[in-house]
Amino acid sequence: MKSNQTEPQNEQTFEEALAELDGVVRALESGNVPLEQLLALSQRGNALAEFCDARLAAAESVLEQLTLSSDGELQTTRLQWVDDDDTDGDA
């Protein structure tokens, strides 16, 4: 009965998860959480924190360039990051 409540949904963004975590902490700190909900809420908070951590750990910027195709349509082209020195985007 807790599984649908405590696990962050996959489609939840990092920002949403962080905002919800903030809300959970505030609720817990208010001291107004009924005892019956305390455990569930704290589990939810932990799951959100782990979800956020995992997102940060796995984060890798995507770099694209906006160009105009031959038929006049705007298109984004994925660029490779060049590690360390030089070359900004054309690689």
């Binding site: 975590l21 817990l28 005892l35 908070g45 924190a49 940060l56």
Partner: peptide, 27 residues
């Protein structure tokens, strides 16, 4: 900065733990 975010998450995690403890103690 992602490092600030990580620190924020850590801090929230700590606050949640303390809040739960405080709540239980309070009850």
């Amino acid at each position: 900065d992602i490092r600030d975010l990580a620190a924020t998450i850590e801090s929230l995690r700590g606050r949640a733990a303390r809040a739960v403890e405080d709540d239980v103690t309070g009850w």
